[in-house]
Design a protein around this nucleic acid. Structure first.
Lengths: 246, 246
DNA sequence: TACAATTTGTGCGTATGTATA
DNA sequence: ATATACATACGCACAAATTGT
């Protein structure tokens, strides 16, 4: 594991040793060899197998910790991060009360179907031409009131059977993606617009037609930056708001 | 600098050595001894003055790097982070074109005055009862069109003379806060609502009354989490949008 | 251009402390 | 109590980038 040192190319392909180790560890996570929630070998064991010092291996692992890929616990070991728990949920759920208090959403699925992807979806999700998508529609209630209407678009090949498999979809979909389909949402790209409610949106959210709404266009990405999900949310900010801590 | 090791209290006040060093360095930055842009002593020098190993001091510095407090450059040294440059600007300016392309805003100040703080402002900015605030109103243009209307509220005691000092305010106010008033904006808390444009907003942004707008309520905080600025922005998302990468 | 001094980056090794099972 | 695994702290050697001579 010292190829770069033995052959210190000046080419832009050079990477420090700990980065090479990091990539190797990341690869074993991405291939599913180490699935979310499982513990990976100890520092000493990994350092031995890769023939590097413990310090170098620690540096690689700490990089993965900073990227929320693994979680380390003194005395226990290092495990691959999961997306259950409130912390992970609220990382991607940014709607809360105006005072900043978070509240749990309750989802009501309105429909799910498989259909041919539009040209835009093919491009945004990186699908094969003429590929199919799963399209889920739902509303989400906060504090007992419908606040969000969502359209969720997924690659049908990557999420085979999702359109019917669990009779009741959980409201934390990303956990399902990870556990059932090995797709971990690592990042998301959101763009927010203000729009006026049309008739169907007004009806779904129980507000007046023409009322101002937030429209959130989200692309969810995995650790490699590949698009996993496209999501279009419409939010009524009568009693709630979008929150962003920078 | 080994008080904690010589006296390893089990009390919750315990902190590892590198965290103590980090706090000491942070303090010297906050007091202004090391102002933004200046270079601090080298690793070796600091390790010597604090009587710790270079590795421990490096760990403290790397923590500060992760929090964007200092910047390290191989061969040069370690400097206190500044808020000039596009990177720092776009960290707190999240309005861009719908395709994700960033564009530079142009500010037009409409008015600035000093007035008594409202009860809400006293609470949110942590002011003394009956304290005064500086109130700045401006519009911001993107691609030649007025897109944002902003009300900016500052503690008058902390920003003495800002209401008149620079005849023309720069459009990157946070840089001014840091350079002229020693107030570094480290974080911000934003809450976003959808509203309908009232008559004055419609006129300022050149849109129809009742058109949907984004309303952004921002509290800007320093490294200690103390409120520096309160800002109320109203954004037309006809040709632009709010962007958030999670 | 070449060289040296300074400073951070990388990598190795070791010892000890602390949390967990 | 013991073993395991991560956390902290120390020290050293060399590489790479920057600056000035």
């Amino acid at each position: 594991m010292n190829e770069a040192l033995q052959n210190p190319q000046k080419a832009p392909t050079f990477q420090p040793l700990y980065m090479q180790i990091k990539d190797l560890l990341m690869e074993r996570i991405n291939t599913g060899e180490w699935s979310p929630g499982t513990f990976i070998p100890s520092e000493a064991a990994l350092a031995s197998t890769y023939q590097v010092s413990v310090g170098t291996l620690r540096k690689a692992l700490n990089e993965l910790v900073a990227e929320n890929v693994v979680v380390r616990q003194q005395g226990k070991g290092t495990s691959v991060a999961t997306h259950d728990g409130d912390h992970a949920l609220f990382r991607f759920f940014n709607i809360c009360r105006p005072d900043g208090e978070r509240c749990l959403p309750v989802s009501i699925v309105l429909g799910r179907k498989v259909r041919k992807a539009t040209a835009q979806e093919v491009q945004e999700l990186g699908l094969a031409p003429g590929g199919k998508v799963i399209h889920i529609s739902r509303t989400r209630e906060l504090d007992g009131k419908p606040v969000i209407y969502e359209d969720i678009i997924l690659c049908a090949d990557r999420f085979i059977g999702l359109e019917r498999q669990p009779e009741v979809l959980p409201n934390t979909l990303y956990r399902l993606y990870q556990q059932r389909f090995g797709a971990t949402v690592a990042h998301a790209d959101e763009r927010i617009f203000a729009i006026s409610a049309d008739a169907s949106q007004a009806q779904a959210l129980g507000i007046a037609t023409g009322a101002p709404l937030l429209q959130i266009v989200r692309t969810a990405l995995d650790y490699q930056g590949r698009a996993i999900e496209k999501r279009l949310s419409v939010v009524s900010t009568q009693g709630h708001c979008y929150i962003n801590r920078i």
